[in-house]
Structures are given as structure tokens and as C-alpha cells.
Design a protein around this nucleic acid. Structure first.
Lengths: 239, 239
DNA sequence: CGAGCAGTTGAAAGAGCTCAAAACTAGTGG
DNA sequence: CCACTAGTTTTGAGCTCTTTCAACTGCTCG
């Protein structure tokens, strides 16, 4: 089930057989997590990283008065707290949105891994930089795109990222988010998400029902979102 | 003038004399940049990193129709495109807000540096992860804080970050931002920034005149912003 | 069958935006 | 030293997107 992680890495650069084997040996154990369960808690000292094998998870930050904002979504194949390797604690919770399968990689083992395969150090560093690039695009969305554009953009992003790990079929994909959760991604209220979703549906752009997204008109959706996948760095870098 | 960079690093962990010397040997050349000049252009292949020595700079992303959002501010001592080391190009421009002095460090030299001092690899990796943490906090601001809270939060952040590099005196600091530029940080319009700024001033919280911020009531400002500096990871990690 | 979410709908309020113009400020050149 | 220009800040008024609050529907599951 670590395959999706390898797909993720290989979408951005090559991974040798030896490297693959070493990665497989580093990521161990697989546990199931229930929806809404906290996978990694903020502010506690970390000594391992957590890989999402299946399901959907998120990074959540909150304000004292209860307002909450998701700062990222994690799809299968993502290390959700690779930045914990260097920072040693998180500034946000990691939360399961659906039923999830996760595996862990002790920091000590990862350090051995990148010590043995220095290219992997660069590749994982690159992965954390990529996370930052996604954050930047979300900042652009939250700061400057309106509700419709923002939502369109998120669905384009998920389409691209899930495509990489083989989870898109006929322009549709599973997306275990309630409208309330979607609103916490988008910096909107649940009510407005509902209305915006209806607008997308009625315009024949996309449908979102029963945790499944079905894109009806990709071209128009991208135009509305002003979606340019460049920030996902899906070109194989020349390492 | 690389001192501020060392202050930045040392605020989060120790740096030995040898490491300091090696860093000094890696960062070379110092050039002056005029306000509004692009320091690093997006989408072009990079082979060096740029360190801000003095002045204020920003990361800027834009939409096709001209709407723009700043995704980060850089203060003296920050590497502004360390993520370019692994990603090899940027998904945003880096722009001077004031007159800036910048130095460069060729990727090749940085790779030699972290090869010779593996601890520095971890420290610089950590620095890029920290950038991501700041992005996350901005996502929270843009998504969930209102104009007043958002602005208060930004000024608290700058106070903390400039404090680290010795650029705060009597709760005040230089901040070469016009109200229009501030609005591009905060996801607001310039007009609304103006009114919010007046509100802060009239409430005796802070003044922002002639590119200088003077904090009048830090405690109340922090309370409004719900500012918790944890996300800046200003505790020395046990490496 | 009832409890409890998730989604839907309506009406009213409000935060922030748009457009436009006036008031300052600072730099430039005569 | 003053006039002139350009950029920035301030102010006003109207508007709109999004929120708030509240109720209602439908579905799932014990």
C-alpha cells in the first residue's frame, strides 16, 4: 500500500530500486484510523512521521474561540508530518476526515535512510517544499479568489493530486468531505458552501454528492479557478 | 551583514564557529535592489539562493486578472528562496518592498556546505519547514480572522520576527509597506486597510506612520490577534 | 420509530468592496 | 523657493458577497 507514496515521488523524479527497497523498509506498521480521529496532535514532541496510505486527512488549526481553518488536505501517498522530522512538533493537528490507513516511519529510521541515500534527503526536502507551495496557493485562494473560484480551484487541485496516485477515474474521484468540512478548507461558512456547490452543479461544472466528485466540464472549471498546476511541480526534476 | 542570518539560525538552535565560518564562505556578493524591483522571478530555473541582508521583501502570487496576494514577508536574515534549492524554480515572484541589500549563495556551494556539515542540512531544511508554518498561520488569518484581527496578527508576527534579528526598539520597528501593499498581504482592499489602521490607532493599540510601526499596547494587540508565537518555533531545538 | 447528522432554504444583517474624489506628502525642476 | 507632479492616505456613499440565524427536509442507523 506504499505504492501511492512511490507514485507521488516518481511523479517528480526518479527513484531507483535500491531506494524503493530502503523506503519500504523504513515505513512500517499500518493502522486504521476512524473519521474525525486525531492522527497527530499539535505541540507534542514527535519521533516518527506518518504516511497516509488510504483515505483523506487534513491539517487543522484553530482559534481560541473555536473558529477553525484547514491548512492542507492529505491524499494517499502523502507524508502528513514530514516537517515534524525537522521541527520536532507540529503547529497544527492532523485529523482523519474519512476512515484512513496510516503507516509510520520513525525519525531515526528516516535519518538512517537519507544518510544511506543522500538523493532521498533532497527528494524528501523537496516534498516539504512542495507542501509549502500548496500552502501558498491556498493563501492566494483565501486572500483573492471568491467563493466560486476558490471551490473550483480546490476541486482542480484534488483532481490533479489524486490523479498522480491513481485515484481518479472518468474525471471523478472520492472525496470524503462534508459541506461543513469543505467550508473549513475554503474559509467560508457551510451555508455558503452549500449555495456555491449548487451553483457549480446547476452550471454543469461539477457534482459533489455522497462524497464523490464528478467533474462535468474540466476546461470551464479550470478557467473559473484560474488553475495552473505549476505549483504542484509535477515535472520530473533532473536529479 | 550576514549577522542577522546567524541570529535567525541561532534563535532556533546552536551554530558552531566552524559552521558559521563555512556559512560565511558560502554566501557571497552583496547587491542593492530598488523598491518594487523583482529579486527572483517565478518559473525560471534557479541555481542560487538569495539572502536578504537588509530591507523588506515579499513573495507575490497573482491571478490572471491582476488580483495579487503576498504569501510571505521576508525580513533581514531570511533566505527568500531556499525552497528553490530543491524545487529549482519558484511558484511566485520575490519582490523588494523597500531598498534592499541581498547576497547570493550558489546551489552548488550550499550543497557542498551541507555535505561538509550535515547538521546544517537539517537546520536549513528546518528553515524551509518553518516558512511553511508561517504560511499555515497566514492561511488561518486569511480564512478565519477578520480584518482587525488579521492586521493585529501580522504586526505581532513582524514584531516577533524582527525582534529575533535585533530590529525592534521600544516596541517599534521599521516597516516599509504602503497601505496598498499591506492590503496585498492581508487579502483586503487598500481602503479597508486604511480604515482598519485608523481603528487600531484610535483604540491606542498601534500606530503605523511613515513606514514605522509603534506598538502601544502589546498585550491587547496579542489578545485581539489571538497571537501565539509557537508557530515561529523560537525555541532552541536539541540538535 | 426516534435521534442525529448532513444538506437545503429563506430572510436579514454586516463586513468588506467599489468607485470617486479630496487632502496630504514628497520629490523634481525651473 | 515655489509650482508641479505623482504617489499615498483619507473620506464618503452605495453596493454585494458572505454571514448569521433559524427552520425544515431527508437519510441512516441503533
Amino acid at each position: 500500500m506504499i505504492e501511492r507514496h512511490l507514485l507521488n515521488l516518481r511523479a517528480r523524479g526518479s527513484i531507483s530500486c535500491q531506494e524503493e527497497a530502503a523506503i519500504r523498509a523504513t515505513v512500517t506498521g499500518c493502522r486504521q484510523v476512524r473519521p474525525h480521529e486525531i492522527i497527530v496532535r499539535s505541540h507534542v514532541r514527535l519521533d516518527s512521521c506518518t504516511l497516509l496510505l488510504s483515505g483523506l486527512a487534513t491539517q487543522l488549526k484553530d482559534l481560541r474561540d473555536g473558529r477553525r481553518q484547514m491548512t492542507a488536505l492529505h491524499v494517499p501517498g502523502d507524508f502528513m508530518d514530514l516537517h515534524g522530522l525537522t521541527l520536532k512538533r507540529l503547529d497544527h493537528d492532523v485529523l482523519a476526515l474519512s476512515r484512513c490507513a496510516v503507516a509510520t516511519a520513525p525519525h531515526a529510521r528516516i535519518l538512517e535512510l537519507i544518510d544511506a541515500f543522500p538523493r532521498l534527503a533532497r527528494i524528501y526536502w523537496s516534498a516539504t517544499s512542495l507542501d509549502a507551495a500548496v500552502h501558498r496557493e491556498w493563501e492566494l485562494s483565501l486572500g483573492r479568489r471568491n467563493a466560486l473560484e476558490r471551490m473550483a480551484h480546490l476541486f482542480c487541485e484534488l483532481h490533479a493530486r489524486l490523479g498522480v496516485v491513481g485515484l481518479v477515474e472518468d474525471e471523478g474521484y472520492e472525496c470524503h468531505l462534508t459541506q461543513a468540512e469543505l467550508s473549513e478548507c475554503l474559509g467560508l461558512t457551510a451555508v455558503h458552501v452549500n449555495r456555491t456547490l449548487m451553483h457549480l452543479r446547476e452550471s454543469g461544472l461539477l457534482e459533489f454528492r455522497k462524497c464523490r466528485v464528478r467533474i462535468r466540464d474540466m476546461e470551464r472549471l479550470r478557467a473559473i479557478a484560474d488553475f495552473d498546476p505549476g505549483y504542484l511541480y509535477l515535472d520530473r526534476r533532473p536529479w
